[in-house]
Write a protein that binds this DNA or RNA. Structure first.
Lengths: 203, 203
DNA sequence: GTCTATATTCGGATAGAC
DNA sequence: GTCTATCCGAATATAGAC
């Protein structure tokens, strides 16, 4: 999850900053950005509505921290899924679609924040950096699947399409909530179809 | 767009109900559900903040009407795209992905409403009915692509995957806004890869 | 560093004039 | 059918006590 660079622990709470991010992500999962408020997060964390402002200058900063935490989580589950998938490059890449979809399904609408919210300036930069690790991970897996002479641009397009499939498959099915395991398996199957079809393209 | 069954025109405004839905969709496109409010829609339509409540009992009803309008629009552009694509069944189906993605890209975050908002009871029913026409359209196009002995269940899964690809591809690219035409073409290509790969599955 | 106010703004919804 | 005026609740953010 999100790191806590400055160790600003102190009073009777272990690490409020980290807990606010945790609760913020949970609230986003339940209500989406529309239902998000600093006050609600504070209540969930068991502190007053003013407490969060000691750790975040304003509402946007807390939102951005939650977004960064979500991306970090996505990266973790994607890496873990590829590891579990075994040696076949196609299966390794396809597995990340399942992991991605599974996380989104578990966190329902929480993703409208990442792709629907308009972060400004400084926060956008932070989130972009967090996204980098996820992208690097998928690019490496994709390189193992595509022909050796594939250009960087084509690999990038391919990875974006892969993420889009996982993302779209999950978000379309978040309401009403269905069985996560079944949907995860299907997301992997769709990703596999995409990979297979792409490799059939005339070159 | 959304129909206006009871012709409740009268005063110095042509058809306020329809205009509220239009402006509501436009506002959703700009701000997502998070920034939506009845008051803002009223201002955009040039009426007082109380006026909308003559046409919609509450905020949720206006939101639901906007959602129904968006789905109706999606259905229109999908049908038109298939018509323009010519006789090849694969191209006809793939084209609907481009139309869907193009509409979503043009309306940015407006789709978090459809798939992220929790409509309750009666409104959910209305929206489900609106979705039906879109689903029927795509099912027919999919039936022309898949082998004749394909089960209804498999066709349904296939159509959902198709929509998910178009939806995911568009939503991932809405921020920052890029060239719509380029992305539409790519969405079609990705959908084509999915169709091709699916037809390669061992049966 | 967290608390208890509190100032302020905004949005949902209603009442009553026209 | 629309307006003005108003009430109420919720949320952001700040001030000052501890």
């Amino acid at each position: 999850m999100s790191s806590t660079p400055p160790p600003k622990r102190g009073y009777h709470h272990g690490d409020l900053r980290a807990e606010l991010v945790r609760e913020g992500i949970a609230l986003l999962a339940e209500t989406g950005v529309a239902g998000f408020s600093v006050a609600k997060v504070a209540v969930r964390a068991g502190v007053s509505s003013a407490a969060p402002y000691r750790h975040f200058p304003d509402r946007e900063a807390l939102l951005a921290a939650c977004a960064a935490g979500i991306i970090a989580d996505l990266t973790e589950v994607s890496i873990a899924a590829a590891e579990r998938a075994g040696p076949d490059p196609v299966e390794r890449l396809a597995a990340t679609a399942g992991a991605y979809a599974g996380y989104v399904l578990a966190h329902r609408a929480g993703l409208d924040l990442l792709y629907g919210h308009d972060f400004s300036g400084r926060h956008r930069q932070t989130i972009h950096e967090q996204s980098r690790r996820l992208l690097d991970t998928l690019m490496a897996l994709a390189a193992d699947v595509l022909p050796p002479d594939t250009s960087w641009a084509e690999t990038t397009d391919f990875v974006y399409a892969h993420v889009a499939i996982a993302h779209g498959y999950a978000t379309l099915h978040t309401r009403p909530p269905r069985d996560v395991d079944v949907l995860t398996v299907r997301a992997v199957a769709v990703a596999r179809d995409h990979i297979t079809g792409h490799l059939m393209r005339p070159r």
